[in-house]
Amino acid sequence: MSLISANKKNKTNDFALGQKNITMVQAITDALDVMLERDERVMLLGEDIGKNGGVFRATDGLQKKYGEDRVVDTPLSEAGIIGTGVGLAVNGMRPVLEIQFLGFIYPAFEQIATHVTRMRMRTRGELTVPMVIRAPYGAGVRAPEIHSDSTEAYFTHMPGIKVICPSSPYDAKGLLISAMEDPDPVLFMESMRLYRSGKEEVPEGYYKEEIGKGKKVKEGKDVTVITWGAMVKTAKEAADSMENRDIECDVIDVRTLYPLDQDIIADSVQKTGRVVIVHEAHETGGVGNDILSVINKQAFMYLKAPIEKVTGFDVPVPMFSLEDHYLPSAARIQTAIHKVYSF
């Protein structure tokens, strides 16, 4: 495909037509399909994403529909995938790169830290890297070592890349489309636990959700619970159960880890004065510390109790028999909510 033709956008209808009840992985496939049809600059690259449809079948059927030039099976080289994506992006394409598991991204770390995130600054805005890196992450699916890491904080520490982590099919599709249209690089984290754990009504066709905006998934006045990804469902379960003790919780899904929606965090904390932060990543150096910083700046004087964090432990994600113990549970979150409420 020539760069001239690649820079022409198809004139498709901008309006969603109807709804369909689908899983998160189906919503991701749908978003990729929409953008492959809508924008000829969009390309997919990754290991086994073409004929096999990817390890989780997120790209199933797309190579057959759009051809091997648009949905490209790559060699087993994460550094090569990201490096190729950089070259495509600075030359006018919109590559979407699949890393089979977030824990496999480490060989490509140098490419991301040195080139992906710095190109705009290095060239004084002459070049940008409009690319999306898709990466399944997280524990709870009985995967082998390295497959279950939740190391998003490595990337939120890199100025120049946005980090998104949806918790529902609707958000996954809308945010992925936004990521594919963003002028800068995006790491799009997809919880493996959520891929097929439930369905939701999702608009057909093209729609977007704003990057950098959180979402309130439960309204309450007593305690603010802040989380993202697979932990949203667990946190809401814990918050629902606390109503039996007459404790009402605001549950905030930040959705974007960088940039954080500081307003939704501060507004909720100023209302409740009590906070529990939940994430499955290790406690030390986690994104929860960035949320603490936001609260200290914008809502410290409203606090009625010390902030509690419920996180994974500071150990590598353990193997099957201890995996559930490693993950934050509804019971652990309930204990933290009660602790801040009764302080």
Rank of each mutant, 00 (worst) to 15 (best):
M1I: 15
L3F: 12
S5D: 12
A6G: 11
K8W: 05
K8C: 10
K8E: 15
K9D: 09
N10E: 11
N10W: 03
D14N: 15
A16G: 15
L17E: 15
K20H: 13
T23S: 15
M24T: 11
D30N: 12
A31E: 02
A31K: 01
L32G: 10
M35N: 05
R38G: 08
D39M: 02
E40V: 12
E40G: 12
R41D: 07
M43N: 15
M43E: 14
G46H: 00
G50E: 00
K51C: 02
K51T: 07
G53W: 00
V55T: 10
T59P: 04
D60P: 09
V72Y: 09
T74Y: 01
T74N: 05
L76T: 14
L76M: 13
E78W: 00
I81F: 06
I82D: 12
I82M: 06
T84C: 11
T84D: 07
N91S: 14
M93I: 04
R94L: 03
R94K: 09
E98A: 00
I99D: 06
F101H: 05
F109N: 04
A113K: 00
A113E: 10
T114D: 13
H115A: 08
M119V: 06
R122C: 05
T123Q: 02
T128L: 05
V129A: 06
P130T: 01
I133P: 00
A135C: 07
A139E: 03
V141A: 07
I146E: 14
H147G: 05
H157S: 12
H157F: 08
M158Y: 07
I164H: 07
P166E: 10
K173M: 03
S178R: 00
A179M: 08
D182M: 03
D184W: 03
P185A: 08
Y195G: 11
K199Q: 13
E201A: 10
V202L: 01
V202N: 07
G205I: 02
E209F: 14
G212N: 09
K213H: 09
G214Q: 10
G214R: 02
K215P: 07
K218F: 08
G220N: 03
K221N: 15
D222L: 00
V223L: 02
T224D: 09
V225K: 00
W228F: 15
G229S: 13
G229W: 12
A239W: 06
D240R: 03
M242R: 08
M242I: 06
M242N: 12
R245W: 14
R245P: 05
D253Q: 03
R255I: 15
Y258F: 13
L260C: 10
Q262I: 09
D263P: 11
I265T: 11
A266D: 14
A266R: 09
S268V: 11
K271F: 01
T272E: 13
V275D: 09
V275K: 03
V276A: 11
E280Y: 02
E283G: 11
G285K: 04
V287C: 11
G288P: 01
G288E: 04
N289P: 08
D290Y: 05
D290G: 02
I291E: 08
S293W: 07
S293D: 14
K297Q: 14
K297D: 15
M301F: 11
Y302S: 14
L303M: 08
A305R: 04
A305P: 09
A305I: 09
P306V: 05
P306Y: 01
G312L: 00
F320V: 14
E323A: 07
D324H: 09
Y326N: 06
A331P: 05
A331N: 12
A331Y: 08
Q334V: 09
T335I: 10
S342C: 05
